[in-house]
């Protein structure tokens, strides 16, 4: 995934696996990231996404896009989006589509600033 985004011309901070929500948000904050992408296979998405969104709000990172993908039941997606999470990509989603989504989301966000 990181490679696909790099190939789409983006600078990707790769943090490694098994990060706590606090670590993810602190990294995004220090790196001044425009987007946080979370790949989750663990089944903990209903905890991790809302927790990260909450930490982002606490830190005033309202202009940072949070989105993700992985093994996430479709039924859970609306609940996550209520927490302010953007698109959730299913396994096997096209890398091009994901890169396109990020590219389109970021300038929009920049304009809104």
């Amino acid at each position: 995934m990181a490679r696909a985004l790099r190939d789409a011309g983006m600078e990707v901070i790769y943090t490694g696996v098994h990060q706590t929500p606090e670590q993810v948000v602190e990294t995004a904050l220090q790196e001044d990231a425009d987007v946080i992408g979370l790949s989750l296979l663990s089944g903990a998405h209903n905890y991790l996404f809302p927790r990260i969104a909450e930490l982002m709000r606490e830190k005033g990172m309202d202009d940072v896009l949070l989105f993700g993908g992985g093994i996430i039941p479709e039924a859970d997606v609306p609940g996550l989006q209520k927490h302010g999470v953007g698109r959730i990509f299913p396994p096997g989603a096209s890398l091009d589509d994901i890169a396109k989504y990020v590219r389109e989301a970021v300038p929009a966000k920049k304009v809104a600033k």
Partner: peptide, 25 residues
């Protein structure tokens, strides 16, 4: 592509929450 993968942080993960440390890639 002009893109990049910045992965040096991986080795510093246990320090991500250190208040006195700022890491920038």
């Amino acid at each position: 592509s002009g893109g990049a993968i910045l992965g040096d942080r991986i080795r510093m993960r246990e320090r991500f929450l250190d208040e006195g440390l700022f890491i920038r890639s």
